[in-house]
Nucleic acid binder design. Sequence first.
DNA 1: TTGTATGCGTTATCAA
DNA 2: TTGATAACGCATACAA
Lengths: 339, 339
Amino acid sequence: MERKPTIKDIAKLAGVTPATVSYVLNGNNRVSEETRKRVLSVVRQLNYRPNMSARALVRNRSYRIGLFIPMSPRAFLDPFFAELLRGLTEVALAYRYVASIIYANGLREVESLHIRELVDGLVITEIKMHDEYIRYFYDKKIPFVSLGRGSHKHFEDYVVADAKKGIREAMKYLYRLGHRRIGMVLGPLGYEYIQERYRFFREVQEELGLSFSSQYIATGANSQEGGKEGARRIMLRSTVKPTAILASTDIMAVGVIEFLQSVGYQVPDDLSVVGYDDVQFSKYIRPSLTTIRQNVYEIGRQAGTMLISQLEHLPYKKPLQIPVKLVVRNSTTVNKENL
Amino acid sequence: MERKPTIKDIAKLAGVTPATVSYVLNGNNRVSEETRKRVLSVVRQLNYRPNMSARALVRNRSYRIGLFIPMSPRAFLDPFFAELLRGLTEVALAYRYVASIIYANGLREVESLHIRELVDGLVITEIKMHDEYIRYFYDKKIPFVSLGRGSHKHFEDYVVADAKKGIREAMKYLYRLGHRRIGMVLGPLGYEYIQERYRFFREVQEELGLSFSSQYIATGANSQEGGKEGARRIMLRSTVKPTAILASTDIMAVGVIEFLQSVGYQVPDDLSVVGYDDVQFSKYIRPSLTTIRQNVYEIGRQAGTMLISQLEHLPYKKPLQIPVKLVVRNSTTVNKENL
DNA sequence: TTGTATGCGTTATCAA
DNA sequence: TTGATAACGCATACAA
């Protein structure tokens, strides 16, 4: 009979009661060094691992964590989430948790989900109306970690990428290539991370002593179409054209390139284009895209660790910032005006 | 006090014992219609939902299912898995299960995972050495559903796409465009789904009365590089060049196109190229890719339903076949030789 | 057709 | 420092 050993088996073999075994396993220190050793040796010997269902029942936990994703066609096709989930899953399994996607479209759908029956806590991504969700989960006392800071005062359980450094690297790189008139095509400003990328763009512009012109800025949907449209507006209304364009996401950069090519510009010879994210297709398009890469997998890992630490009342550092870096490919080159 | 109602609360209010409530909830029909109604009404009234942890403990289940993925850098960047997981997650949640990724690289790593502690069952994807995994899980009596059939005799819990129909549509489409010399660039034949796509290619060739020439066939890694290499070999060794090439995956098609362009061919004017899968980047590359689309989301849903039905001993149809369809974009056009 | 009693594997309370 | 024992919420064998 190959039945899995239970806490009782351990207790019997170690000559103690289940309670004592439980104490040992849970780091309760009101137990003598001697019995602790004895118990642990039996645990190893039988390769005992606590039954998570039983533990879940008595501790009123599910040992599941969720990656909260706003339901939208885009969401799941975005490799960003897949990478995130990979990182999250990995730390989850290490702690004997399980990570799952939880998706819902809007707070009303969230209400109907009975989130606490599904998971012990959530990692929420940089969704639209981010603040609303943060407040909601905060008020409902649903444990969560946020990707992106939000605007709440007393909330520090978040992980962010060092977007400023990314933007700065990209801009400095363009600057060194001789670019002075740098435009930006932005996604919807309702998203915190878009706002942030724009703000840093402005700040770095100042650092570099570049003048600002609203002619070179356009917003649009976070899509290929949006990128095309943004590029079109910038190119049509500017008398002196920009020599480089930074897009707030890779997918918009694709649109930018497409528009430029459609009206006869060569990328990067006539105009350099930089993306943001480094999603999978960035290296497949022609020209391959120079872009700012976030280590999304690492973000997932850190967020997962933070969430589980919070759930288990373990100490942890918060908030957390993850580095980013510029990946140079073929959509950028020297500004020939300066040659 | 807003405590969640338990089975005891229901029992008390309905004037029965917890056992009776349990019978009603689990469809045990040795209970009178009258008490059943009474119980159900109380259940609805208190919005009672069984505690899954308790149920998990007593039934020795975790109510988690896993999507088994061979750990590899490629795996997670592949939108195929993301889509699959989306479908799986959706049915899982409907049944109050939770879906998670389980990844491992090789059977040895699987061994160390204690899979049955993590999940009640798996959906396994079309991995290399597929058969080995099928046999392993089969022998270990770990419930699972396979994507792709494998070669086992008495195993029918699988979901497949109708690849033959997809290949046929693509080839017929090329045929109608005047193409007669159609080549194929293939990924590693160790994968069942690659073998299958090749086999159907051959069968449809016969159907269409096209002659076969091994000159037009090349295999390589399932990657952009592999696609380039395959196209190179086909183009170098053939005296009469093919007018169209079918790639076994989109990513290989990208490589094929890249090679052709690099040696001065125009796609689609000189050569038409067709991919398979319709992953995200297929519409972003230039020319955008004509490809065979599988409804991966639906495959995920069906596989999930099959797995849960198996776990819960519900009746279900097996095996299952999902339709595919050709998506025509800009990498294919009429064969000008025939104009 | 329904109730009683017991067990699932842990953790936690209270004594000892 | 340890042991009995009672929960946790549900399912089920057996009795009534």
